[in-house]
Every structure is written in C-alpha cells, then in structure tokens.
C-alpha cells in the first residue's frame, strides 16, 4: 500500500505545483525602479552593447530563450508582433546559454523570461513564461 500512497502524494503535489505555475506563468511583474537592472558591473541600466541591439525610443522587449524551451517560439512571435504594432519598441531575443554571465547577473531562472526596458534601458517589467499579448501592450502603456 505504500506505493499507492506515494503515487497519490506525487499526483497531489504535482497538481498543486502545476496550478501554481500556470497561474504565475507569463504574468508581468513590476520591477522596483531603484534596484532595476543592476548587473554585476554595477550598471543601473541595460545598454545597447549589453543586449546587442539599439534601444527602442519608447521601450525595448528583451527575451531570453534556450534550445530546450517549448514556449519560446510563441513568445518570440508575440513580441515581434507587438514591436511591429507599437512605434518605438525594439525587440531582441537573447540565447540564455550563450550569455550565462548576463543570465546570472539578471537572475534569469527560466526561459522564456521577458524584460520590458524603458527608453533609457531600465528594467521596468519582468515575466517568466509565455506572456499574453494584451499584458505586453499594457506593460508598454504603463511605462510613461
């Protein structure tokens, strides 16, 4: 009977974790502006050199992806769509495995992670998992 109890316990725990994860996945969280974007070099902001593209005049959507990531492709499509729709919004997709220093400095734990930078490169919003398009657009609207 021990085996049955273990199986039941695993199913209950995994269900609880799965529900918790689903409710948190892709949610845009506000980043404290005073501590936002601090890298190991003490930089308060992410600049064009760090992320590899010019910052958008309004905002920049920074995505971290990896090879073994199911929702990364859908995330990329959403961010490309939003950056094409809203003027002054740039998008960059960073390979987490090839940029482990940056991943550690920004404490990226999952892919996809999406950072919303304001016009000077400060990290203002952060989401782990596939974000909803409306939430990305809303986050851009809240930057001003």
């Amino acid at each position: 009977m021990t085996g049955v109890s273990i199986v039941l316990a695993i199913v209950i725990l995994a269900t609880a974790f799965g529900l918790w994860h689903r409710s948190n996945s892709g949610r845009m969280k506000t980043v404290d502006i005073r501590t936002a974007g601090t890298t190991e070099h003490g930089d308060a902001i992410l600049d064009a050199q760090t992320i590899g593209v010019d910052l958008g005049t309004r905002a920049t959507l920074v995505q971290f992806s990896s090879a073994f990531c199911q929702p990364c492709r859908a995330t990329r499509q959403i961010l490309i769509e939003v950056s094409g729709m809203v003027d002054g919004v740039a998008h960059v997709d960073i390979d987490a495995e090839a940029n482990l220093d940056l991943v550690r400095a920004l404490d990226i734990r999952r892919t996809p992670t999406v950072l919303v930078l304001d016009e000077v490169g400060r990290i203002r919003r952060r989401a782990s998992g596939l974000p909803r398009k409306v939430d990305v657009i809303a986050a851009l609207g809240q930057l001003d």
Binding site: H21, S66, E97, R109, R110
Partner: peptide, 21 residues
Amino acid sequence: AFLNAAFNFCLGCEVFLLAKR
C-alpha cells in the same frame, strides 16, 4: 511525466538552464 501530461510543463527543460547556470 504527470506534469508533462497534465500541464504541458517540461520539468527537464526547466532544469536545463538552472543546471547550465
């Protein structure tokens, strides 16, 4: 396996980046 079937959550994939870090 249960998380994969029930929630489409890939535990191995999530651990991959953490292990790399």
